[in-house]
Design a protein around this nucleic acid. Structure first.
Lengths: 209, 209
DNA sequence: CTTGTAAATGAATGAACGTTCATTTATGAA
DNA sequence: TTCATAAATGAACGTTCATTCATTTACAAG
């Protein structure tokens, strides 16, 4: 059979180095922004000469694309896992999942929202499609809940964006050891979201201590 | 009297050029990001040689600081004007004001949220202080409304951030000529915000067609 | 008209950029 | 142990970067 002859076969050490490149680039991109980070800096973090990076990624742009795409893939896969393991209210499930996932992946989230404009057009299209898939999950929950009268949502797409913007803002200010635990933040935001989409009244609910 | 001898006196043409530098930098920074924009590009937009920019701004960083600081100053001054002209519900006033201001200044908003990390520490501190002043306005509204029982807000600071994140997300997707008018978006978001902070029920309200 | 100086030029600075490549080193399979 | 080749090196490529500066141009005040 015709093997792809352009890509060299990787050894264990190569995969390890590639992984460290991703990790270093993630930190640097999140901290200073893609355009402000040099391949030399990434190489120094990894402990390798700049030229060696090109054994693992064809260009700097490919590192960014790799980071952003795998983040979106992880996000969608993690949602599938979270939803299949639960049978609670889908809206609660989504809100808690979103907050947890985005709090424990602050760097990836930051990059995925800030570096969209540094993606070349074809890469941008790929990432944007994944983002729409994720938004569609919440839109679907809102539409279903609206249809059977549990929610009152005038425009499910707009409400989706409003809720996601609200939730995604959390990692920009949340710090561990602050005066609110992650659990409290989840409860607080869930309560706000529920009230925001409620038809009329909501009985303030709290299930977890 | 001892005049500041370091800063040359400006002529009309100089002020005009400086203004065009700001305008060009605003567009470029918003489109590609501060780090990805060169002084040469800005100079070309203005129709001047790169060296001439330094007659108006000491460094590239100073252009960014100028843009971000004057944006925050405009924002706070515009709020003062908006609130003194109104006597409606302060929360409604804030929500409508925030949406309007941020929709008509999409580029400035984009820069002010995306380029914080490209500010040198002392400049960052200045901008951040202005941002906190603005957030305090909404926090105050929520606290007052909470105190007299009109709202039920568990943590006014967190709720402030949630609401502002929600509203500030609008310019990232809103386009003129979409299926929702700016007026409709205001009503929609105001309704969500009111319900989110309401003690219990809210009678779905609509004043404008 | 003269003159001080703001404004712009044009050329140059050294530094940093992403990327390439011939060469060396290291490693797993035979 | 041999050998193919993955991985890393070290040096260089041409380009672009922000900034500087001596000089020229333009304009408003005297």
């Amino acid at each position: 059979m015709a093997i792809n002859a352009t890509k060299p076969q990787s050894r264990a050490k190569g995969l390890e180095t590639a992984s460290r490149v991703r990790k270093a680039a993630l930190k640097r991109f999140a901290g200073a922004g893609y355009a402000a980070v040099s391949m030399r800096e990434i190489a120094a973090d990894v402990g390798v000469r700049p030229g060696a990076l090109y054994n693992h990624f064809p260009t700097k742009q490919d590192i960014l694309k790799d980071l952003m795409l795998s983040h979106m893939t992880d996000l969608l896969r993690a949602w599938d896992a979270a939803v299949s393991a639960q049978d609670t209210d889908p809206l609660e499930c989504f809100v808690r999942f979103h907050i947890r996932f985005h709090l424990e992946r602050a760097d990836e989230v930051f990059i995925s929202y800030m570096e969209l404009r540094n993606l070349e057009p074809e890469n941008f299209a790929v990432i944007e499609a994944e983002r729409r898939r994720y938004e569609a999950i919440l839109t679907d929950i809102l539409k279903k809940g609206s249809a059977d009268g549990r929610y009152a949502v005038e425009d499910a797409r707009v409400t989706t964006r409003a809720i996601i913007a609200m939730l995604t803002g959390i990692p920009t200010w949340y710090r561990e050891g602050g005066h609110l635990s992650e659990q409290q933040i989840e409860d607080l935001y869930l309560n706000m979201v529920r009230k925001a989409v409620a038809p009329h009244a909501i009985n303030s609910q709290r299930e977890t201590g």
